[in-house]
């Protein structure tokens, strides 16, 4: 038993390192999601007109919607490749439980893409007409939101593993669960911009991220185990 405690952090670290390097390089890495995010942002004024009062009114909501959609993109690759390559068979014979493996993979993917999107979010909002002083709060919100998206998305990715319907199915499964963070996140920006207190929206956003962190690994672990049996 005592050896196990020594071994596990080592294994966890090596898995995190491997997946992080893969999420940064494989299939164009974060470039794909970032490009998609920026393209969506560019489409917003093109579809709504460049009138700055309209834009600044809808900017927070549309930015959050774009963030949610861009977060979907990398989910298909999250487990699929390692599942097809047979890597999960090695991972299961190692010291980490499936729940931890799944969580680490989600976190690596999030660090590789979700966090990049979060860092871009303040700039997107400012370009769409939000005031510069909203940058910090929108960054915090986007970090929490993209983390929730990554983990809830991981549940969808693990459930649809091996179906070869990939992206569309994951989007269908996952988007309803993206409703709360989108509402809380857009609400946070709304509150900040109208001068209302932001603590409620911020704590709800935090709570949902924690909820995802608690629920996600259990669901992903069960789904992966069933996919690998």
């Amino acid at each position: 038993m005592s050896t196990k405690i020594n071994v596990a952090p080592h294994a966890a670290l090596s898995l995190l390192k491997r997946d992080l390097s893969l999420s940064l390089t494989r299939g164009g890495g974060p470039l794909l999601a970032v490009g998609f995010y920026l393209t969506l942002m560019a489409m917003i004024p093109l579809s709504l007109g460049s009138d700055s009062t309209t834009l600044s009114r809808v900017a927070p909501g549309l930015t959050w919607l774009s963030l949610a959609l861009a977060s979907l993109l990398s989910l298909e690759r999250l487990f699929e490749r390692d599942y097809e390559d047979g890597l999960f068979d090695i991972l299961r014979l190692g010291p980490l439980p499936m729940e931890v493996i799944a969580l680490l993979k989600c976190l690596a993917q999030w660090l590789g893409t979700g966090l990049m999107l979060a860092v871009l979010t303040p700039f997107v909002m400012i370009i769409l007409g939000a005031p510069v002083d909203a940058a910090f709060i929108s960054l915090i919100g986007a970090i929490l939101g993209s983390l929730s998206f990554a983990i809830i998305g991981g549940i969808g990715a693990s459930l649809s593993l091996g179906t070869r319907k990939g992206g569309v199915l994951i989007a269908l499964l996952v988007l309803p669960f993206y409703v709360p963070p989108v509402i809380f996140g857009a609400g946070l920006m709304q509150a900040y911009l109208t001068g209302a207190p932001i603590t409620q929206a911020l704590s709800l956003l935090c709570a949902y991220a924690l909820f995802a962190l608690a629920l996600g690994p259990i669901a992903m672990g069960a789904a992966l185990k069933s996919a690998l049996s």
Partner: peptide
């Protein structure tokens, strides 16, 4: 198993 568990880009 049948698969060699090697990631193609590494």
């Amino acid at each position: 198993g049948h698969h060699d568990a090697l990631s193609p880009t590494r």
